[in-house]
Amino acid sequence: MHGMTLLFYGFSAILLYAACRVVSARNPVHAVLHLILAFFTAACLWMLLEAEFLALALIMVYIGAVMVLFLFVVMMLDIDLARLRQSFWRYFPLGAGVGILVALEMGLTLGSRFFREQSLAALPSRAAEASNTRELGALLVTDYAYPFELAALVLLAAIVGAVALTYRKSFLRRSPDPERQVRVSAADRLRLVSMPAEKEEDGVC
């Protein structure tokens, strides 16, 4: 067994463990930390495939930015753990059953002739000085310029959607409006009502 293969299985085992813990951890902060571990291990696997740029981008973007944000959100949200747990265990047998079934089916298929005969040695190996980043960059602005631009438009749609849904509706915001507070007059707050005076005989004084 090659050292590389050993590394691959090691990383895969850690990845699977981390992924399972993300779902089963009691504390959401622990779940997020395990998700970070899962991303990091996936980056290591990519490194084994000589995709250095993608591996580093995964670490920078997902672990550096997205997951830290996630961690903050999870810490700030007041999640009712007991209720979450309850539904988790209720659906667990069904989910586990479906998961095992899918894994079995995939195992049967992936064990077929096609996937066994092709070895990874068939992949072309590149010279040590070939730069991943340079090649990716060149591809993005030449052959893949069209999907690159499309992806930019998809992001724009997401931004416009997010802003339109969260910002615009002032009725959803609970912040006071200082302008209105200053301009307020007594008539807005206080209403003087003239009521008939009470009669003597009804008096309960």
Partner: peptide, 19 residues
């Protein structure tokens, strides 16, 4: 990508009436 563009903008269109 075209499919995602369609789905994402449709999703926002559906939710636009937030009241």
């Amino acid at each position: 990508l075209g499919l995602e563009m369609l789905s994402l903008s449709s999703c926002a269109l559906i939710a636009l009436d937030r009241r």
